[in-house]
Design a protein around this nucleic acid. Structure first.
Lengths: 245, 245
DNA sequence: CCTTCACTGCGTATGTCGTACGCTAGTGAG
DNA sequence: CTCACTAGCGTACGACATACGCAGTGAAGG
């Protein structure tokens, strides 16, 4: 029998394998409960509202009690990042393209319920069980293609990159729109139009005067449509690449 | 003569058009200086180290002096976001594909010098002069193509989405690698390999056992190469779309 | 059974943060 | 000259993360 897994303890925590205590009083708190409470707070009031005090209050415990189960707030945020990802969709039976499309839209939908996800600090490669499950799911969609394993990884990783960009821009824009729709109103657009000097910004000016920017059409469903458009373009590229191979 | 631009004052600030005072002592501080100092602090010690106190200390002034020029820290962060973007590259004379590739790599290079950019909160559509200059630059690369203006916007916006994803994942990974290379070392990989159950993660397991994940090859130049690969795929898709039109 | 002591939960304290408020002193319009 | 207005700043407050140490609990070892 080999050594019993010298897991870096951060990973052990992520996978629920931190050794539990053998002595002392029964724990009234668990890491799972804490993470769930933190997610609840974040869903309700945003990531900025997640403080150790608020999370503890949500559980009816004192602030410092959390530190027995979680080494720091950063660690809690890391756990939240994995917990936000529910199970990936079942892609079996789909061709690779339908599979990846379904996958991308699913992860966006999942993260739409946890709008704070995009604001989590990235402190290392995603390594939690749910994260890996999603990664596996996307790779699985490419199983029956003639690509080399390394190429599959590259293609999926770029897809993830694209999705993260969408989260950062699209979702955050959506949130700021909900908070203050005036920023997207006609007053704003008109004020902006005066700033866009046709000499300094020729191409942009052409777009604006063509009427493409007159209203809040960069928001809401148009945003998802835009994402689908980009996704299609990317997958067209992947398809061409596969034919070339 | 029409009304003299009722600019939302946040935008006025961004464009350096906040009306200056007519009475009172000469200002010893300017918005520009403050933003420059904040960027200096962020470049040196990261975005988390940017506090009003530190920025003021950098300028040899007291904390509260900053608030005469900047309404809040959020406003300062917004200004930093625009200031981080230097001038876009000159793409004239390039075909659209070379132009967009140059553009994407340039913006990544620019933001590499300001690694904190990806962590700035997104509070609205990018609207600062430098931001618009980059947007205009990318649109300009598509001038001589047969696309409709709205399609150009969509293509550029998706490219921006992709670049933002790269910033979030790639650059932050790079940073965390620099801080703690052990997290990418062989110990880590071996520990991870034990967690990847072939039944639960079939596709991922296949990749790992094919040796694609043995080392820190997702980092550094391989990361940029990966980005280029994804960019090529996307642009292939754009090219096909243009032929179809 | 009793002792031991690792462990949980929590109260207190420290240092940092953003920023509201009001003061002082300098300035230019009247 | 006057004085409304302004820049910079000192103080204060509430929120935050978290180090530290204490008190009580209950399984392990005798």
């Amino acid at each position: 029998m080999p050594d019993p897994v010298p897991l870096p303890d951060e990973i052990a925590l992520l996978w629920g394998r931190r050794e539990s205590a053998r002595r002392g009083p029964k724990a009234m708190l668990s890491v799972d409960e804490i993470v769930r409470a933190a997610v609840t707070v974040a869903d309700a009031d945003g990531l900025a509202a997640v403080s150790m005090a608020k999370v503890a209050a949500e559980l009816g415990k004192s602030t410092m009690a959390l530190y027995r189960h979680v080494r720091s707030k950063d660690e809690l945020l890391m756990l939240m990042g994995d917990a936000a990802l529910a199970d990936p969709p079942d892609l079996s039976g789909m061709d690779w393209r339908t599979g990846l499309t379904t996958w991308a839209l699913s992860i966006l939908a999942t993260l739409h319920e946890h709008g704070w996800f995009a604001q989590l600090p990235v402190n290392g490669p995603p390594i939690g069980p749910n994260n890996l499950a999603w990664f596996d799911s996307a790779l699985g969609a490419l199983t029956d293609t003639p690509l080399a394993e390394l190429q599959k990884v590259g293609i999926v990783q770029n897809l993830i990159t694209f999705v993260h960009g969408e989260m950062r821009l699209g979702r955050d824009l959506q949130r700021s729109y909900d908070r203050d729709p005036d920023r997207f109103g006609p007053d704003y657009g008109r004020a902006l139009a005066e700033l866009i000097d046709p000499v300094r910004f020729p191409a942009l000016s052409r777009v604006v005067s063509s009427g493409a920017f007159s209203g809040p059409e960069m928001i809401g469903q148009d945003l998802e449509e835009d994402f689908r458009f980009g996704l299609e373009l990317y997958l067209d590229g992947v398809e061409a690449f596969m034919r070339r191979s």
